[in-house]
Design a protein around this nucleic acid. Sequence first.
DNA 1: CGCGATTTGTGCACGCCTTCACAAGCGCAT
DNA 2: ATGCGCTTGTGAAGGCGTGCACAAATCGCG
Lengths: 268, 268
Amino acid sequence: MSQHRPLGASGRTAAVPALPDLPEATVARLPEYLRALHHLVEAGHDTVSSEGLAAAAGVNSAKLRKDLSHLGSYGTRGVGYDVARLVDQIEYVLGLTQRRFVALVGIGNLGHALAGYAGFASRGFRIAALFDADRERVGEKINGLAVRHVDDLPEVVAEESITIGVIATPAGAAQRVTDLLVDAGVTSILNFAPCVLSVPEGVDVRKVDLAIELQILSFHAHRKASLTALPRTPGAGLASMPSAVAAPGTNRRPGGRHRPARTEAFGT
Amino acid sequence: MSQHRPLGASGRTAAVPALPDLPEATVARLPEYLRALHHLVEAGHDTVSSEGLAAAAGVNSAKLRKDLSHLGSYGTRGVGYDVARLVDQIEYVLGLTQRRFVALVGIGNLGHALAGYAGFASRGFRIAALFDADRERVGEKINGLAVRHVDDLPEVVAEESITIGVIATPAGAAQRVTDLLVDAGVTSILNFAPCVLSVPEGVDVRKVDLAIELQILSFHAHRKASLTALPRTPGAGLASMPSAVAAPGTNRRPGGRHRPARTEAFGT
DNA sequence: CGCGATTTGTGCACGCCTTCACAAGCGCAT
DNA sequence: ATGCGCTTGTGAAGGCGTGCACAAATCGCG
């Protein structure tokens, strides 16, 4: 933890200060911390306590401290974390110090929206190419960038140093596009198509399926409904349930993810 | 497991066959199974083995069996699962036997795309109302549905029996919209705005942040790059860090190291 | 200069999830 | 009817992630 790291505000030391391999769960939260930190910067804060940052990011403060400790621990006891330094640190670890170029494939309904989504550019990602298989759409300009035919993908990916592919095609085309991207050297793929992609080892795929999210919500709604519809299970030691019912008006827990609430009414 | 369940092809028995409370991880995978099953139905299969379904859904077969066992176990040893029955079962558990009505708030770039996204309707969700705060947009029709002003939200939500809210507004408006939805009785929210929402207990929030997904990919890309750039680690104080570097080139375990994201086809 | 207030970093225990491995159950051929 | 092969369902073990609780460290103030 005391291993000094040549990062700071000074130089980004282009390569290899030996990235620690963070727990996946931590990696998933770092972007959230980063966003909260940017807010703090704009608000003029220059330090923040783990408690404060955790609240802003919607997580437990102990979890936040542990997460940050994994990447080298830059807090000062009794004071908190230096906001600017922490921003640098997280951005470095996430690889955001270098701009990343993105190819977006499938300029349909969703792809069109993604192409115009400001949230990408504002966080260091540049959409460098748009592709579609429909020659009707080729040539169309979105935000000043022309749609190209997917046949051109291999050469364009190489020319533009593209390292991330975003797939917004119908499911039927997704695997073909994936293979194209992988062959072109892309090793990170964000998949919006509702299907499973097969990729060689070393290629990273993340999936976002809007319908799945709704179905998960549906489950919980269904479950809540069935619970309230049922007056209650007789007997049932509710005492065993810790926070389930909890004081009525007490407080609105912000980040508290739904706890499945463990109603031990197992079977019947 | 033997608790007979009045579902089958016969009736949906409107309410309360005592939903088991599934592990959250299982719930998140059920929609994936469901999609794979629908494919199998179209392909004419009437039974499927856990191995086959697991491959189609991109998961481990043991995991799949355990998942299915949680919801009552409808397989036949030596044969496999009855596809049609399994579809019914999963759809029932997920609450998809009743149509769910969705309100979409924020008809900007992304909202517009979501409003036109066919994937929702095809899985039983009906977008029943569109809202925006910009009076310029009010009245615009998308897929035959007119955009209404967000001030009308409370009454429309009640009229249309809306139970799910989708937030596609800028971050600054998201909390306000959330409060509106919650006050109107919505207990399931899908949030696309890059911010943390505060909701009272009992309300379910899921978040989809496109930029975060890219940042996670960026991390892995960065990490891969730093590993290949460094042939060997310059020993030094890294020993103090527990699992710091872990053999650069010996990474021949497919599933072992960092979790590759949720869906990922074990290539090799 | 020392003390108390504050906040970080982390050891520890617990629970969830995953995976292996295998017994139990089922159908089919003989 | 019987045995064999296939597949499910699950006990058990291990790993990962979470949250508590506290020692260590730092600052500010008297």
